[in-house]
């Protein structure tokens, strides 16, 4: 019997294949853009190829990377977590409030606050069936208010350990960057090698099928929001350590948008079922490099926003092709 081969649906167009190109763009566009920006800067920006410069970029992007990874997990379940910026501000407030007990207890309390906020948001989504955008919007508003009540104005701290965490480094690599790298590795491992990761993807792809096949859908959902909350709280701690003051009024403002941007630009589809860890890190890095490039060349910040918009639209367009294919 002759080999059974699927007949080609249509003769493949030779040369430029639009949908394949866009699919490539969604997967690798962010790496290509980062590479392009680096080359541009190496040529046109003075003092760019210096260790100090890369350190600055990585330190500034670290909190965004951490928040974005949590966001990527939530988006992988077809949800969204708008509360991350307010969780950062709450963790900054709690950190300074409990610093009197020492650095470690204060850190734990701050992270616990993030976990609790995530648990509340996750429970609303999983058990009460509230839409993620609504549940986390309520937290966005409420937690910022709570943080402001707790610490009504910017508060400087003197704790040497916390100052070291924000400004210190080991072997030339700032602690803040090390923490972000560790989080990246941990999230990457969780997504590839653990049941949690596989269940998350399964639920995000098709929640009904997950329920029918007996997956603990609700538990996984709550856990995902808890992880996002803890990571946002961690980012709040690192930012606070870096600026050497807790500033709940302005810390983390619009962070939810930066994080969603990083996730989308990194190629994670908003429709769930897929989480791109490395892509998300690159997405955050791309936005950071873009902002810093325009800043270094002394262009007004309104330009940055417009260029960002173009990149987001490009990413969404590339993603749309894949979905409709």
């Amino acid at each position: 019997m002759a080999d059974v081969k699927a007949a080609p649906a249509a003769p493949a167009r030779t040369g430029w294949d639009r949908s394949r190109a866009l699919s490539w763009l969604q997967d690798y566009g962010v790496y290509a853009s980062v590479a392009l920006l680096l080359v541009f800067n190496a040529v046109f920006t003075p003092h760019y190829l210096e260790a100090g410069n890369f350190r600055t970029q990585l330190v500034q992007v670290a909190p965004i990377v951490i928040v974005s990874l949590g966001m990527a997990l939530v988006i992988g379940t077809e949800g969204v977590d708008l509360s991350v910026g307010s969780v950062m501000s709450l963790s900054a407030a709690m950190l300074t409030l409990y610093l009197g007990y020492g650095l470690v207890p204060a850190l734990l309390v701050a992270l616990l606050g993030g976990a609790a906020s995530g648990a509340v948001g996750g429970a609303m989504v999983a058990f009460l069936g509230v839409q993620p955008i609504v549940a986390t919007l309520a937290l966005l508003v409420g937690l910022r208010g709570l943080a402001n009540v707790l610490v009504p104005q910017l508060k400087e701290f003197r704790d040497p350990g916390l100052l070291e965490l924000g400004g210190g480094s080991v072997g030339g690599v700032p602690y803040v960057v090390l923490v972000a790298a560790a989080v990246t590795v941990a999230v990457g491992f969780a997504m590839r090698r653990t049941t949690f990761g596989r269940r998350l993807v399964a639920i995000g792809g098709n929640r009904r099928a997950g329920e029918l096949s007996g997956l603990p859908v609700k538990r996984v959902l709550v856990l995902v929001y808890v992880v996002s909350g803890v990571l946002a709280a961690l980012a709040g701690v690192l930012s606070t350590a870096r600026i050497q003051a807790a500033d709940p009024t302005s810390l983390g403002l619009l962070m939810e948008l930066s994080a969603i941007t990083a996730v989308v630009v990194g190629g994670t589809p908003l429709t769930g079922g897929r989480v791109r860890v490395a892509g998300t890190v690159m997405g955050a890095l791309l936005m950071q490099l873009l902002t810093s490039t325009l800043t270094k060349h002394d262009l007004p910040s309104s330009w940055t926003q417009m260029v960002q918009a173009v990149i987001i639209l490009g990413a969404v367009y590339a993603a749309r092709q894949r979905v409709t294919r």
Binding site: L97, L99, L112, A116, L150, K155
Partner: peptide, 11 residues
């Protein structure tokens, strides 16, 4: 829990 037993550096 947030406000219950806070103790800041200045307290």
């Amino acid at each position: 829990a947030v406000s219950g037993c806070a103790k800041s550096e200045d307290d």
